[in-house]
Design a protein around this nucleic acid. Structure first.
Lengths: 210, 210
DNA sequence: AGGAGTCAGTAACATAGGTTACATAAAAAC
DNA sequence: GTTTTTATGTAACCTATGTTACTGACTCCT
């Protein structure tokens, strides 16, 4: 665990903090699709991502979903922190996008470390900073972009996070993430294929040039 | 300044911190409509709201606006903090919604206070928590709600923040905040009037029962 | 092989919201 | 008081997106 920790966080946390993390943290390895956090959960620990990726999404009262953003190596979930500090329920759902390794830190340490370790404090603030900005980006795309652009952006992100030009999703799954209907996605994907930007197959698609 | 500070923050900050705030903070009083922060600004101080209200909004590349949320007494701007910590440019615009009093804290104190004062730390974390949740609410309404509901919600918020059932805005101004067109707002407002939920006048409208 | 379930393609249609255009009324400017 | 500007009302139209329905193709199961 110590090597994996160092490879992701060694440059930003000092030795003493790294040691504490090793002592109190729990190493966890979850498969793609594993649900890490459900809306309404009370959170008892904070995740530090070592490898893999986690998608964070929002759900409305009718059960409709919307992808917010991905967490990757070196990230943590600010919503989780935020919930921990406030002792409130989770507002979001978190699902492993692929096989993912993480270290869970009990929330009791948050308070102590924030006062003791400057690097930890910076890490926490940086996380909030990043998450706020990602939320803004998501909001921008919903508020200002049409579905064509949102879809292209989605495919690019997906490709980046999964480090692959193959997107292994059905049209229905993409539709859920973007909060629209399958028919709409099929239609737009077909248009992209006609423009030779992607190639469609059953259960997956290949990005040619976006 | 000390009384005003105590009336808003006296219950959550200890004496020593309150004193420090008085020493390093600058009291500022701005009229409604005053632009506090522009997109792209480098921020040098953090605002603590004493009274009044500030609206925070986002702009896209074409100059189209979108209202994010209001800051009120006891609030601070997490985006500002976030920018300060990261030394990056502001992602948002902040405009006084009405006559507003605030205390500006130089960012140099952020780092010190966060390690010294537990109450300050909690304040900062709470702010982030609140802001994240407000952003989520805004995002929900854009992603999941239709314009009718968004408009009603907008009018309610406006009324709450300004403590008045009179909304002093033209249809065009409302349209900007909701990122839609004047005609659409006129149409929907007229529908609300026909349902006797509001009463329309030139340059303002009155809420009857929403 | 045959049947059930899943996925994608497509047409036809419905609707919300955006756009253009113009009329009228109120307010402001002169 | 007349002109100009600004705010609102409304109609007609357009477009993106959502909905429903049906098809064929592929996959999996037995």
């Amino acid at each position: 665990m110590i090597q994996e920790l160092k490879s992701s966080y060694g440059h930003q946390f000092e030795e003493a903090l790294l040691n504490e993390i090793v002592q109190v943290g729990t190493f966890k390895e979850v498969p793609a699709g594993f649900k890490l956090i459900e809306i309404g959960d009370f959170i008892k620990s904070i995740p530090l991502l070592i490898s893999g990726a986690v998608k964070v999404l929002r759900e409305d009262k009718d059960g409709d979903e919307l992808l917010l953003y991905y967490l990757e190596k070196g990230d943590t979930c600010s919503f989780t922190m935020s919930c921990c500090m406030g002792q409130t329920q989770s507002e979001i759902r978190a699902i492993a996008e692929k096989d993912t390794k993480l270290i869970m830190i009990p929330i009791s340490k948050m308070e102590t470390w924030t006062s003791t370790y400057k690097t930890w404090r910076n890490f926490v603030f940086d996380s909030y900073h990043n998450r706020l900005n990602e939320l803004l980006t998501t909001l921008d795309s919903i508020a200002f972009d049409n579905m064509d652009n949102r879809l292209v952006h989605y495919l690019k992100e997906k490709s980046r996070v999964n480090k692959s030009l193959i997107i292994n999703h059905t049209h229905q799954e993409i539709a859920y993430d973007l909060h629209t209907s399958r028919v709409v996605i099929s239609r737009l994907l077909k248009k992209l294929e006609q423009k030779e930007k992607i190639k469609l197959y059953r259960n997956h698609l290949k990005i040619i040039a976006l």
